[in-house]
Design a protein around this nucleic acid. Structure first.
Lengths: 157, 157
DNA sequence: TGTTCTTCAACAATCATTGTAGATACGGAG
DNA sequence: CTCCGTATCTACAATGATTGTTGAAGAACA
């Protein structure tokens, strides 16, 4: 993700208007490695702007995703997460207890669909999700973080 | 997933009661490779039992998942999908246009988190999602299948 | 500065999923 | 085979995440 200043420029140059609300979202996202949900971003932004609406946060995140400045991803924690790291060569670690998400920077060059197994699909990209326990949850009685419903009883495709 | 008869036995032996509704879900799931959503399963079952409720379908799917007979997974199509194939050595192909899901049977033995990159996580499993276009959607003007909201503007972690 | 078009906040609405309650049916005991 | 306790059923309401709507307010450009 570009810097808040560059994003301001980018928004203007693509016909989008720059507002205090949006710049606040830029700032909050800057350097964030926790893959926050829209709700989490809203909470962070609210600390500075008490009246900002959740809808506005969603709209700004949607715009950023459309511009390719952030990536929206669904790792099965019940809500869409947003990642300012748009590097193609990274994947994700997901805690199956608290739902926290971290980037795993590693290239898996052999990640190709074996010839004949693609069932007619035209494959464009591959994502890997590693599931396990985050450091906090490994230390036994650590408290849960997110408020979403389903963390237990999750997948293993 | 076991056969409907074996599932009947399994349900009984684990203290669960066997009803016509449940057996109908067993039958519908048997041999299904489309990774249906709860709603899709409900539609299929409804063809036989018009009055079955969606809640019952959810409950049965939940039970089957608890018993390890099916796997629930979230591949970002907006709803949980269910897979009667519980083989650990397979991954998924997801159409980014219509949201259809297929199994990709292939082992990726080198799918280990590089030493030092796991950020303190205790990694238990890894899933790969390959995104692209299914055969139907490749042939241009093919109609959309699922009814969910977000199919466009999806992730690429 | 004025004009115009976008974006804002505060709703209400939607979709997938889950909780509740009373009626009903399974399945082991008699 | 019938009875009874308990799990399950259906219908309906409620939840959480996300999106649509609307009138007011603000950004960008002439």
């Amino acid at each position: 993700m570009k810097s808040p200043e560059e994003l301001t420029e980018l928004f203007r140059s693509t016909g989008r208007k720059v507002t205090a609300q949006r710049q606040c979202v830029f700032r909050v996202l800057q350097g964030d490695v926790t893959h926050p949900s829209a709700e989490t971003v809203h909470a962070l932004v609210s600390a500075e702007m008490e009246t900002i609406s959740l809808k506005t946060v969603y709209q700004t995140l949607y715009d950023l995703a459309e511009l390719g400045e952030i990536v929206s991803l669904d790792v099965g924690t019940g809500m869409t997460r947003f990642d300012p790291n748009t590097d193609d060569l990274h994947h994700h670690l997901v805690c199956r207890r608290c739902g926290s998400v971290r980037d795993l920077v590693a290239d898996f060059p052999q990640l190709r669909v074996p010839e004949g197994a693609e069932l007619g699909f035209e494959v464009g990209s591959a994502e890997i999700v590693f599931r396990g326990l985050c450091p906090d949850c490994r230390s036994a009685a650590a408290p849960e973080q997110t408020s979403g419903r389903r963390q237990t009883q999750r997948s293993r495709p």
